[in-house]
């Protein structure tokens, strides 16, 4: 027991010190940054919700620093590219190559941190099917690893031609990124709505239990039962809607952005129905 406590405390100390070290430093390159490695689902089960939130916050801070640094690097690259077009000298080509290389590395860092942050949000999300969560987690981790490989390749490149080849590979990777990101974002929005629905169902069941022993006249009882039927009809409708949207997310043939746009409209409908059923619950609860 004591050993376990000591071990837990050490784990916490190490975790906090790692997070603090990372946050206190300036823009950190992915290869020497412990936050560059995503927390796996099994790892996240071993840490508390507060630690997970701290991890996400540390990633958010790192992301802010990295995006600022990247924007400067991108600006330098754009200037060098313009100068190269204007001057056409060998030294301007060399300068563009170096600035492009730096910008590509920093871009990869930004994307790695972003996907890590996305993964943390996925882990923290309620109302998502466990199987779906595991699959999405695996997809994100695989994607992070692909960016890490790309980053390593770029950092080993010195010449212009190889850099442009790496840029071609990045194009393919980035297309997958866009699709994956929108798919995950929609899944997060949907799971949040599903979490509300599940809470509403739970509250409805509690309400039914509380009202079961109320001394009501037969007419009132019949009226209450009709209200229950109406509520259950809306809940069934909500369940069908969310099930359909979950299938939409799982459809591999559809692009992420399309799913996100279609899903956004569906989510509005689901939210309207949820507000309606909650209004019914409020009305019924006033009888208690």
């Amino acid at each position: 027991m004591f050993k376990k406590l000591v071990r837990l405390n050490w784990q916490k100390i190490i975790f906090v010190s790692v997070v603090l070290t990372v946050v206190s430093r300036g823009p950190v390159l992915a290869e020497d940054n412990p936050l560059a490695q995503p927390l796996t689902l099994s790892e996240t089960k071993r840490i508390s919700a507060d630690e997970l939130k701290s991890h996400a916050q540390a990633l958010q801070d790192l992301y802010t620093q990295q995006i600022e640094s990247y924007k400067l690097a991108e600006k330098d690259y754009q200037l060098a590219k313009t100068q190269q077009t204007q001057l056409g000298t060998l030294s301007s080509v060399e300068a563009t190559t170096q600035f492009a290389r730096t910008a590509m590395i920093e871009r990869a860092d930004v994307l790695i941190t972003y996907f890590n942050l996305l993964h943390d949000y996925l882990v923290m999300a309620d109302g998502m099917e466990p199987g779906d969560k595991e699959k999405t987690s695996a997809d994100i981790i695989e994607h992070i690893q692909a960016y890490q490989t790309h980053r390593l390749a770029v950092s080993n490149i010195e010449d212009r031609a190889s850099l442009n080849l790496a840029a071609d590979e990045f194009d393919q990777l980035f297309k997958v990124s866009t699709s994956l990101v929108y798919r995950v974002l929609y899944n997060l929005d949907l799971s949040q709505m599903n979490s509300y629905r599940l809470t509403a169902v739970d509250l409805y069941q509690q309400l039914q239990r509380k009202q079961a022993d109320l001394p009501l006249s037969p007419a009132k009882l019949a009226q209450r039962d009709r209200a229950y039927l109406d509520i259950e009809r809306v809940f069934a409708q909500l369940s069908t809607q969310i099930e359909f949207q979950q299938q939409l997310v799982a459809d591999e043939n559809k692009g992420g952005q399309g799913i996100y746009e279609q899903g956004a409209t569906l989510l509005v409908e689901t939210r309207t129905d949820l507000i309606r059923v909650l209004g019914y619950l409020q009305e019924l609860a006033s009888v208690i």
Binding site: E74, A100, M104, V110, Y114, L117, L118, L185
Partner: peptide, 12 residues
């Protein structure tokens, strides 16, 4: 969690 706006086409 807005997707970062990065320059997709960095080439020399």
């Amino acid at each position: 969690l807005v997707f970062p706006s990065v320059e997709a086409d960095i080439r020399v």
